[in-house]
């Protein structure tokens, strides 16, 4: 356990939150997409976070301060929302079915924005943790002066 592994843990948090933010922006960008390579409208994606033992170098694992495996976080899965798409009546649309309805992604922009804010705040919190760890390391290095 060291301050460097604390930085590693926060980095895993930043990575996970950034992945989530990427998926959210993808959802927002595709809020009106009716065609995808898989066919049908775009489907909302979301990241599933799982706590995972932080990556450790061999040396770190050997000289561990305590037997505690510090938990980082990782995106274990990207879930695709398979609920029914929203149907809008647009008879002139090239993707309209015989009844004149077009299947649109079921994406609520307000919900996505709130998730995006939460991802951004989570990212900031991890950055704050890294900068305090860096501060502590800098203080330790001051000891040599």
């Amino acid at each position: 356990m060291s301050l460097f592994s604390a930085i590693g843990i926060s980095a895993s948090g930043m990575d996970a939150q950034r992945t989530r933010a990427e998926l959210i922006t993808e959802n927002l960008a595709n809020a009106d997409t009716t065609r995808t390579p898989e066919g049908g409208p775009y489907r909302r994606k979301d990241a599933v976070f799982t706590s995972a033992p932080a990556e450790q170098s061999f040396a770190q694992a050997l000289s561990d301060f305590s037997g505690y495996p510090a938990q980082g976080v990782s995106v274990s899965q990207v879930v695709v929302d398979d609920s029914e798409p929203e149907r809008r009546y647009l008879p002139g649309h090239p993707d309209a079915d015989p009844d004149g309805y077009v299947a649109f992604p079921k994406i609520n922009p307000a919900e996505e924005m709130v998730d995006l804010m939460s991802a951004s705040r989570g990212y900031q919190a991890n950055v704050a943790a890294i900068s305090t760890a860096k501060d502590m390391i800098a203080r330790s290095m001051d000891l040599f002066k």
């Binding site: 060291s2 592994s5 843990i9 976070f49 932080a54 510090a70 976080v73 989570g122 919190a125 943790a129």
Partner: peptide, 12 residues
Amino acid sequence: QEVVSSNIANAD
């Protein structure tokens, strides 16, 4: 510090 970082990383 490491434990606190771990908590923050796993806030979600």
